[in-house]
């Protein structure tokens, strides 16, 4: 009912505006100011042209204002090695974009202001110039070639890191929780698959695989500083996306396949707190692929610390098999019979 009343009021309000406009139009016709035509008068053209001119500069001004207001937030501070090269590419691209953005908009503003319609003036009949056409095809082509090349070099460097002895950590996603799995003393993570999931074994570790016994499963992600880490990603149910904005890292977690991303964290949480002058600063891993009602709350704290602190932390965590009774083994053995899919 309320909504209906609002609509009714809106309708009558607009009717009043319409009638006022009509009265203005009719009186100006009486005063012989307007020829009865829908074509805008010289005055109207001038008015709108000027407004477009001012409006465009207001728009450009707003861009500059927002840019400088949020300058520090324009990409959060980078904390990974490759993050800086991505930021450099970003900076170059932004500069090119801004130049084109300003140039074209200033031209647009000047043209609409200068050439607003006047009575008795005729437009310049000019419709082709192949040299001009060639010129403004060539320039974007050259600029883009450079940009593409630069982008591809960075992409290749980020996706194919040379360091092969990285520490392997598995990131595991399910609605609506993140887990990290560390390899333990044997430096290898054990076999896991969805058919082994049962009870407290949320990640589906195969208890017959001894490599998995010393794996450490945690609810937050600790990374040693300056050491390459290879993250592999799995998902239990739907697609999630592990997004680490400070590390310029994002990778989808897709059920049925394992994805990967390797990088080197360069700044510890403590260093970042000092740098940002914010004692509450924390790195974070967010879910960035729509995954259900609590998608917006699916996150995992991330801590980057010195190697020694990291070692202390990982040693204090219980390995997977600790305290696990034979009952667990039986349970998963039973479950093994159910689905017939092969283990990944």
């Amino acid at each position: 009912m309320n909504a209906f009343l609002i609509l009714l009021v809106l309708f009558f309000g607009l009717s009043v505006i319409w009638q006022i406009i009509r009265i203005f139009e009719l009186t100006s016709i009486l005063q012989d100011k307007v020829i009865l035509s829908e074509l805008p008068s010289e005055q109207t053209n001038n008015f709108n042209g000027t407004l477009l001119f001012i409006g465009t500069f207001f728009y450009l001004g707003a861009f500059v204002y927002l840019f400088f207001t949020y300058r520090d937030k324009l990409l959060p501070p980078s904390a990974s090695e490759h993050g800086f090269s991505i930021d450099a590419l970003f900076g170059t691209t932004i500069v090119i974009i801004s130049i084109v953005f300003f140039l074209t908009h200033i031209l647009l503003a000047f043209f609409v202001y200068k050439y607003y319609g006047k009575h008795g003036r005729k437009a310049y009949f000019y419709h082709d110039n192949s040299r001009l056409e060639f010129f403004w095809t060539l320039i974007p082509t050259v600029v883009l070639s450079g940009l593409i090349l630069y982008g591809l070099i960075i992409w290749d460097r980020v996706m194919n890191p040379s360091d092969s002895n990285a520490m392997h950590i598995e990131i595991y996603a399910k609605q609506f929780q993140w887990y990290a799995r560390y390899p333990g003393a044997d430096s290898a993570i054990g076999i896991a698959g969805y058919q082994h999931i049962a009870g407290t074994n949320a990640l589906g570790l195969d208890t017959n695989d001894r490599k998995g016994w010393d794996d450490v499963i945690t609810g937050d992600l600790h990374l040693p500083v300056n050491r390459p880490v290879l993250l592999t990603f799995r998902s239990q149910d739907v697609i999630h996306s592990a997004y680490l904005p400070h590390f310029r890292m994002q990778m989808n977690c897709v059920p049925g396949m394992t994805t990967r991303f390797q990088f080197t964290p360069q700044t510890t949480t403590t260093e970042m707190r000092l740098k940002e002058n914010n004692p509450d600063f924390d790195f974070i891993l967010l879910c960035n692929k729509i995954c259900g009602a609590a998608h917006y709350n699916m996150k995992m704290p991330v801590v980057v610390e010195e190697e020694s602190l990291f070692k202390k932390w990982i040693d204090s965590q219980a390995p997977f098999m600790a305290g696990r009774s034979s009952q667990v083994k039986n349970q998963s053995a039973e479950l093994n019979v159910l689905p017939t899919a092969p283990v990944n």
């Binding site: 805008p40 053209n45 042209g49 074209t104 593409i148």
Partner: peptide, 25 residues
């Protein structure tokens, strides 16, 4: 990124059309 080239051509052509026109707003 190649798509930017024909798109840029279109924009420049619009600008050139407005240049020295007799614009009715």
């Amino acid at each position: 990124l190649l798509v930017a080239i024909p798109s840029a051509v279109k924009v420049f052509n619009y600008l050139a059309t407005l240049w020295r026109g007799n614009l009715r707003f």
